[in-house]
């Protein structure tokens, strides 16, 4: 029997990653450079909100205090969110958004493939479902990174700048703390560090094809597993949670 508190925390991490990036991508609605991209980015956002809903609902059940997925999304404070920092960074330009999509979805393809074998049946089921979606996200991002990297001088500059700026947020994806360690032992979670070689190989291939430089691993930002965030998360929450904070339990 897994320590329910560890499982609860792990589910919050998975759910918060989807929730926060979903919110970021939704900000592109009506602002993307092409209508097809508006559709693509908001569709990704929709996939992620569905994933967040399923994971946070399960988190609430595991916690056993009667909190719903909406309670968890709208009524937790910043320090109680456990998404990776890369998810909360502002969208930047289109190159930055697509570079993030590539780095994140490549990681998620590996993560959810591994989690589809989790001993926790609910996690395995959600992971199997999610895997189909994130493969699509990755294919889309890969196309754009190559097209912009191997494009004009300006698109190349912007894409290289985006990859460089994002790189120090990638180390966190492969970290593990005692929550991970315990759940890995029980066959529920995945050792994310073990996914790193495959991730690096794939990202290296795509960046090379895009005529981009793979940044050197240097200082890496961290903190999300302890609920420590960049200054950007608070701003997201103030917008996302506004209605439930101003009018608790409002429905329509």
């Amino acid at each position: 029997m897994a320590d329910q508190n560890n499982l609860f925390k792990y589910l919050l991490r998975l759910g918060d990653n989807a929730l926060v990036l979903s919110h970021r991508l939704s900000e592109w609605c009506s602002r993307a450079p092409l209508i097809e991209e508006d559709l693509a980015l908001t569709n990704f956002s929709l996939d992620m909100i569905g994933r967040a809903q399923a994971l946070l609902k399960y988190a609430g059940e595991v916690e056993g205090k009667g909190r719903t997925e909406d309670d968890l999304a709208y009524k937790r404070a910043e320090r109680q969110f456990y998404n990776h920092l890369v998810m909360e960074l502002p969208n930047g330009d289109f190159a930055f958004t697509m570079a993030r999509q590539l780095l994140v979805s490549a990681f998620e393809c590996l993560l959810f493939e591994a989690l589809s074998n989790s001993k926790d049946e609910t996690i395995a089921a959600i992971a199997a479902k999610t895997l189909k979606e994130v493969k699509y996200h990755r294919a889309h991002a890969e196309d754009w990174v190559i097209r912009l990297g191997d494009g004009t001088e300006e698109s190349y500059q912007r894409m290289q700048h985006a990859v460089n700026a994002l790189w120090m947020y990638t180390g966190e994806l492969f970290e593990a703390d005692e929550v991970d360690a315990e759940l890995i032992r029980e066959g529920i979670a995945v050792d994310q560090n073990s996914l790193r070689p495959q991730w690096q190989e794939y990202i290296g291939q795509v960046l090379t094809e895009a005529k981009l430089q793979v940044p050197a691993d240097g200082y890496m930002q961290t903190g999300s597993r302890k609920g420590i965030h960049t200054e950007h998360l608070g701003h997201i929450l103030s917008e996302m949670q506004y209605l439930q904070r101003a009018y608790p339990d409002a429905t329509w």
Partner: peptide, 8 residues
């Protein structure tokens, strides 16, 4: 069974 996780 939902078709897509975020299917509205």
């Amino acid at each position: 069974t939902p078709t897509y996780t975020g299917c509205p």
